[in-house]
């Protein structure tokens, strides 16, 4: 669409700008401030230069948390995106089952995040949880509070439960926008189910799927509350993702300098990766 050039449009953006700047700029500058200073805990600060950044970049603890974070994010993307697409494809397109499906599936999205953690905690506990009892009843030794493997399994299952619906709803929105004429044409040509998916459905879903990947990527990289309530980062450090590690460092040990440096590095990683996604998305849109 051709838009008119109008610099006065800045006035329309002003309220948003002021509100977001207040919330984003001041806290960000506080973090920057901490990241270059040293304190001995008595509210006196010394210039420390970039040593915290060097420390964090070389620390094995940060590397380990980053590796866990990347493993988590790419595992859930690899499960949630294809699963969401398959569910959207098999969902009814009209009739009374549509609202039933949409409403029940959207339910996990509106549960407060710590309640999500609590739900999965009591669902998976070996003594009182349904999942724990069933798995142990089947002869599988399962206790997510002690076994790192089981903790990861529960964490991934929880995230798939929590967020696959978002992918389903996005993909479904893309699918219902395809006119029936497309399918009729495909039928006349004798196209296979796979051909219909590959040449009609997938291109139509491309844009919404990009949004899905972008949102899931950003949010899973920021995940804090759910794993904190479910496993608390344990057993040991096995499920300590970046955010959990950061809060342990900042509020648990009160190492403000390293925590701030870590925050900024963490933010920059998300920013860089999201910028790549965003540019790809916008390039498609302008085409």
């Amino acid at each position: 669409m051709n838009k008119t050039v109008n610099h006065k449009a800045w006035f329309l953006v002003l309220p948003v700008l002021v509100l977001v700047a207040f919330n984003a700029f001041i806290p960000l500058m506080t973090v920057v401030n901490y990241s270059v200073q040293e304190t001995f805990g008595d509210n006196t600060f010394f210039w420390a230069g970039l040593i915290w950044f060097e420390d964090v970049l070389h620390s094995e603890r940060f590397h380990a948390a980053l590796v866990r974070q990347l493993t988590f994010t790419f595992t859930i993307l690899a499960i949630e995106i294809p699963l969401g697409v398959v569910i959207a494809l098999t969902m009814p397109k009209r009739g009374i089952w549509v609202p039933v499906c949409l409403v029940t599936m959207a339910l996990p999205l509106l549960i407060p995040w710590n309640v999500v953690g609590a739900i999965w905690n009591i669902f998976a506990l070996p003594e009182i949880g349904l999942l724990g009892q069933v798995l142990n009843g089947l002869g599988i030794d399962y206790n997510f509070t002690r076994q790192p493997g089981a903790a990861w399994f529960t964490l991934i299952a929880m995230d798939v439960w929590h967020w696959t619906s978002l992918v389903v709803l996005l993909a479904y929105a893309g699918l219902v926008s395809i006119p029936d004429a497309f399918y009729q044409a495909a039928k006349i040509d004798g196209a296979s189910t796979w051909a219909i998916f590959r040449h009609i459905q997938l291109p139509k879903m491309k844009r919404v799927l990009t949004i899905a990947v972008l949102l899931r990527f950003m949010d899973s990289f920021n995940i804090y509350t759910e794993p904190f309530v479910l496993t608390g980062g344990g057993p040991g450090n096995s499920t300590t993702l970046l955010s959990i590690d950061l809060v342990k460092l900042a509020l648990g040990q009160f190492d403000l300098g390293p925590a701030a440096a870590m925050s900024l590095i963490y933010f920059l990683i998300i920013l860089a990766l999201s910028w790549i996604f965003y540019t790809l998305m916008m390039r498609d849109e302008e085409r």
Binding site: M218, Y224, L242, A250
Partner: peptide
């Protein structure tokens, strides 16, 4: 949009 990406844990203390 970057503010949508900011990890909330980073900003809690500030």
């Amino acid at each position: 949009l970057t503010n949508r990406m900011a990890p909330v844990a980073v900003f809690a203390l500030p």
